[in-house]
């Protein structure tokens, strides 16, 4: 039972959260080629290291969170509310 830091609620059990996916910029739907669009849909960096991810604090504040998480150690070096923008 890993604890994840929620910027609104504090450290909470990971079971309260939902993993949404890697964060990726949505291509311009009017201009994207099939290749670009499907890269966005399907291709993943899937790093063994730091990953930029989108999570939902489902059983908490209900906010989407942008999280920088290490996929080997489980460490989290940055987390913020996804709506607040920030350095991507």
């Amino acid at each position: 039972m890993v604890l994840l830091p929620c910027p609104h609620c504090g450290p909470r059990d990971a079971a309260e959260f939902g993993y949404v996916g890697e964060r990726a910029a949505r291509p311009d739907p009017g201009a994207a080629t099939p290749q670009q669009w499907r890269g966005y849909l399907y291709l993943r960096r899937n790093p063994a290291g730091w990953a930029d991810e989108l999570w939902l604090h489902r059983a908490g504040c209900g906010r989407y969170l942008a999280m920088s998480r290490h996929t080997v150690t489980g460490d989290i070096r940055a987390v913020r509310d996804a709506a607040t923008g920030g350095a991507d």
Binding site: E22, Y42, R44, R45, P47, A48
Partner: peptide
């Protein structure tokens, strides 16, 4: 499970999450 990291060495992107 290590497909992405190995294929990354060859510059091949995959639709895979581990």
């Amino acid at each position: 499970g290590w497909a992405s990291t190995v294929c990354d060495l060859a510059g091949v992107a995959l639709p895979i999450t581990t």
